Computed example of a mutant assay.
Amino acid sequence: MKGILKTALLQYPLVWEDPEANRNRFSEVLKDVSPDTDIIVLPEMFNTGFTMTPENVAKEEGPKTVDWMLQKSLETNAALAGSIPFYENGAFTNRLFFVQPDGKTASYDKRHTFTLAGEDKVYDAGADRMLVDFRGFRICPLVCYDLRFPVWSRNTDDYDVLIYVANWPEVRITAWDALLKARAIENMAYCIGVNRVGTDGSGHAYNGHSAVYDPLGERTAFSEKEEIVHTILSKAHIGSVRKKLRFLEDRDHFKLL
């Protein structure tokens, strides 16, 4: 239906540093995604977990996982979005890929590497934000720690949807909940957050809280368990909110140096 974007949020545990096992698991999960879904969102580093030792995984696993995403996008007729450790030009990045059924691929390297875990010492940070136009919606995908930095997320390009993929631990989940809602309100856009569940190889516990917030900050989807979360975004709703409440017209104008 025109003006509607159907999304599937994949909230699952991840097998530590085992891309093949994770691809196989998600291949099974994708069989249960609604057949009319437009976008399927996976967690951050969905093929390895949030590892700070990417050298433990064969460097070819990055391109292999992108090929898998392309194949699954074609099979499901939906875009797939998620980040993976990616090796290129002698360095690793935490790279989010947004792949489409027609084979079109866009990527974004996580701007804010998580210094508390030493991510800044292992992965090169990105410099440019990515915007994707897909099925009538303008989408801005970002990664985990980016959520804490509202300037980087600011809606200066009239996007409709913010997507955050994450490995956000249970111990700090209150911040995740609050910031997802805040990003939706201040940017007058849908805000999607996809987290994982389970325990990773470093002993960190995750309790999900994958969610969708509408442009007014109303939560329209939420989960704490292992499951697929289906939700529908409405272009008309975005337009109605922005027409009634013209807050974006009063936004500050700036350029990041």
Results as ranks from 00 to 15, higher is better:
Asp36Gln: 08
Phe149Ile: 14
Val171Asp: 14
Leu257Thr: 13
Leu42Val: 03
Thr231His: 11
Tyr123Ile: 02
Gly193Tyr: 03
Ala127Gly: 14
Gly103Asn: 00
Ala189Met: 07
Glu227Cys: 09
Ala182Cys: 11
Ile39Met: 13
Pro54His: 06
Arg135Tyr: 01
Leu131Val: 13
Phe50Tyr: 10
Arg129Tyr: 01
Lys243Tyr: 09
Gly49Asn: 03
Arg148Thr: 09
Glu249Pro: 00
Gly203Thr: 06
Asn47Leu: 02
Val29Glu: 07
Gly90Asp: 04
Thr93Gly: 12
Gly217Ser: 11
Ile4Gln: 15
Asn155Cys: 00
Val212Gly: 06
Leu5Lys: 13
Asp133Glu: 15
Met52Leu: 15
Asp160Pro: 06
Thr51Glu: 08
Ala8Glu: 06
Met45Gln: 14
Val161Asp: 00
Leu10Ala: 04
Glu170Cys: 02
Thr115Phe: 10
Ile4Asp: 04
Glu61Pro: 01
Ile228Asp: 05
Asp158Ser: 15
Ile238Phe: 07
Thr113Ala: 14
Cys144Val: 00
Trp176Glu: 05
Phe134Asn: 09
Lys104Trp: 09
Phe247Gln: 13
Asp177Ile: 15
Glu44Ile: 00
Leu179Gly: 00
Met69Gln: 04
Phe149Asn: 13
Pro43Val: 03
Ala78Tyr: 00
Arg154Val: 00
Leu74Phe: 15
Pro101Val: 06
Met52Asp: 11
Asp252Gln: 15
Leu142Met: 13
Ala182Glu: 15
Gly82His: 02
Thr37Ile: 05
His112Phe: 14
Leu256Ile: 12
Lys64His: 07
Glu88Lys: 15
Leu233Arg: 00
Asn89His: 12
Pro85Gly: 08
Ala211Ile: 03
Met188Val: 03
Asp128Arg: 10
Glu20Met: 11
Phe114Ala: 12
Glu227Lys: 12
Ile39Thr: 10
Asn94Cys: 10
Glu75Val: 01
Pro150Asn: 13
Phe134Ser: 05
Pro215Lys: 09
Gly193Thr: 03
Asp250Trp: 09
Ala79Lys: 05
Arg135Glu: 07
Arg242Pro: 01
Ala166Tyr: 00
Tyr213Arg: 04
Glu60Pro: 01
Ala81Glu: 12
Phe222Asp: 10
Lys104Ile: 07
Phe137Gln: 03
Leu233Thr: 01
Ala79Asn: 05
Ala58Lys: 14
Ser234Asp: 10
Ile192Ala: 04
Phe26Leu: 11
Thr174Met: 10
Ser73Tyr: 03
Arg138Ser: 12
Glu17Val: 02
Tyr206Asn: 04
Phe247Ser: 14
Glu20Thr: 14
Gly126Trp: 02
Asp146His: 11
Leu96His: 03
Leu9Thr: 05
Lys64Gln: 11
Pro215Trp: 08
Leu30Ile: 02
Thr93Tyr: 02
Thr65Tyr: 05
Val151His: 07
Leu14Met: 10
Asn89Asp: 15
Pro19Trp: 07
Arg148Met: 11
Lys181Met: 10
Leu5Glu: 14
Leu70Tyr: 05
Ser73Thr: 04
Leu180Cys: 12
Ala189Asn: 05
Thr53Trp: 10
Pro215Asp: 08
Glu119Arg: 06
Arg172Leu: 13
Leu142Ile: 00
Gly198Gln: 05
Asp124Leu: 13
Val143Gly: 03
Arg183Tyr: 06
Phe134Glu: 10
Lys110Asp: 13
Gly126Leu: 04
Met1Glu: 12
Cys191Asn: 11
Asn195Ala: 07
Lys64Met: 04
Lys2Glu: 15
Ser234Tyr: 13
